[in-house]
Design a protein around this nucleic acid. Structure first.
Lengths: 351, 351
DNA sequence: CCGCCTTTTGTTATCGATCACATAATGGAG
DNA sequence: CTCCATTATGTGATCGATAACAAAAGGCGG
């Protein structure tokens, strides 16, 4: 319970009192300098500045927090269940937080339902956080409870004006996928959707359905799955029964891997018999056999952007940064998608 | 006179003064209760306990830190370059830290050399950390500089008695891999090693070499690579020239994916012509085509274990937890490894 | 029952910053 | 040149915990 002193360096760090004495002013003047140097007389301001530089002063954030009842700590909620949650997104967010002088605590939020609500409550009780950034979709009650206390931004979630916070949850690239498949001659395609509590999963599904209809294609069915290969495998097994389906759009690359495996076990070749498209462009996806047609995302930028939204929410004065649109999201064509077979659904009869 | 704060409003958290008043003792007694309840008379202790429960008291860590000049913040250094650093390892560590009442800050450590040393210095200056857990190998100078200030544990690194801190860096399963390949009739095998500044990569290589020799096999060569598929692909391209190599052991699953791709492009089938074995057992690896023979690791337990070592280092009294050995590390046999071809190196002449 | 030592509890100071208020310095209008 | 509103600076209190020291309570031999 009692950690040893930190930073037992060469002498203790300087305090405002030492700075004040050296500058020949009161400690409060030093404090004012930090709040807003322009409110001091230029001469005073300069004296303080010099003293600070000489003593190599850095403010004690602990003391400041105690007095102001604010903290410089933010909370990052990451999915505990998703074993390979892209850490780039997290490091992007962490970097943005640190640039703003905040520290980012990581907590894995596992499970679901009341269990998770309880866990969230305990975390929020544990220490005062200035805000929270969640990479996990939060149920309505969780969110309300959390937001009673601190600003919460759910990456890829909607803001309170119900404008989608673009980027992470933007599903528009699903339109490109459908168009790509249609251009290759596919007529009947299917979708393996992610967990529908994730806005990103919902948007991909929504855009998929709309695009299929607009392109005049047949919807071969939608199977919902978790964000992992095992679940994609299981979902695809239900879809492969319909041999007239010649293309599958999976909501992420892991699902696509599982789907390809399921097709392989059914003796159906990718892309000769069935095309498969993923989403996320994992670094491995270009090296799979077949390499995966997918949607590239700049995960680090997305994490950083989500954090900037949170930081903006912490300062009531400032407005959130403008939505940078879908930059960095683009369809990458690789081997797993190809022309529809000549006689769709008849591959087994060709021999 | 210093009366306790006016009203224990439902909004603000209770303080020791309020607890003390309710329990009919002094605030210092409450403080003592938290330090060690057994030092109080049983009756007093119980009164405090009841008051705490009634007020739902949680100590203000900020105030405590200010007085004790200590912090409850730990630093987690994760590789910024590795896009899919297993976040499970991180969440395991975070959970262990939180159980001990610490908060874990995440920082991505990118680049290398003096650049990185500078970045590390800035981070350590930024706020007082009680300790640091690095998932990145630290160069000698970085490490020394950091350890001057706070305890540092590098996951998978050696401790100061040069006992390997087992688990993460344990390479013994490489022996199982070589034995497995030898049993399948392979005579000449190769290794794609990870970056040699990582102890885990060095140990896998070391055990590989030793096992190859002991099994009386031929070492077909070692290619060093980064921890990603692209690098595994490039490394394998140099190895496939030697067509007498019938098996490749890659230091992790991503490298194996890259290697399989390179073999595929050379027209060599896996496992019919060449067997490939990975390490880590990514959740996707079971669903690849071919599914990957690999070494399963319990990443979350490893992260948690590394954190426990750090926590032990923070309390000079306690000794580090016993090394739990290689539990959870085991070879998983799948499709990517199979019997050596009848006429090794002659596959292209069979037709 | 006293005195002395040990255990238990209470009182006041302190960590390093900001806040609230008091006071000194400045500046423009009359 | 005075007066008063403004601006700039200083003084003391405060956040919530622990540290240091003081005092009270309990135990035991003589």
């Amino acid at each position: 319970m009692k950690p040893p002193p930190a930073g037992a360096g060469p002498g203790r760090a300087a305090t405002i009192y030492e700075v004040a004495r050296l500058a020949g002013v009161s400690h409060q003047t030093v404090s004012r300098y930090m709040a807003d140097p322009s409110k001091l007389k230029a001469a005073t301001s300069e004296k303080v500045e010099r003293a600070m530089a000489e003593l190599n002063y850095t403010p004690n954030l602990t003391a400041r927090s105690l007095r102001t009842r604010s903290t410089y700590r933010l909370l990052a909620l990451v999915p505990g269940a998703s074993p390979y949650f892209p850490s780039r997104m997290l490091t992007g967010a962490a970097a943005a937080a640190q640039d703003a002088g905040y520290h980012l605590d990581v907590v894995a939020l596992e499970g679901s339902g009341p269990d998770r609500t309880e866990r969230l409550r305990r975390i929020l009780d544990g220490g005062p956080f200035a805000g929270a950034l969640s990479f996990v979709p939060l149920a309505g009650t969780d969110l309300l409870q959390a937001q009673e206390r601190i600003p919460v931004v759910v990456a890829g979630e909607y803001d309170d004006q119900m404008r989608g916070q673009g980027r992470m949850s933007d599903g528009s690239a699903a339109g490109s996928i459908v168009a790509h498949l249609a251009a290759l001659g596919h007529r009947r395609i299917a979708h393996i959707a992610g967990p529908q509590e994730w806005p990103a999963a919902r948007n991909r599904l929504r855009v998929y359905r709309q695009a299929v209809q607009e392109a005049g294609l047949e919807d071969g069915g939608v199977a919902e799955a978790e964000w992992n290969a095992a679940s994609g495998y299981a979902a695809a097994q239900t879809l492969v029964a319909d041999r007239s389906i010649t293309a599958i759009f999976a909501a992420n690359d892991q699902l696509a891997v599982g789907a390809i495996r399921a097709l392989h076990e059914e003796g159906r070749r990718v892309p000769d018999d069935v095309s498969v498209v993923g989403w996320d462009d994992h670094p491995e996806s270009a090296f799979l056999v077949p390499s995966l047609t997918t949607v590239h995302m700049d995960l680090e930028a997305q994490g950083s952007h989500a954090m900037k939204q949170l930081l903006a929410a912490l300062k009531p004065g400032r407005t959130p940064p403008p939505e940078p649109g879908t930059a960095g999201m683009r369809l990458v064509l690789r081997e797993s998608s190809g022309p529809a077979p000549r006689a769709p659904g008849q591959t087994s009869l060709e021999a």
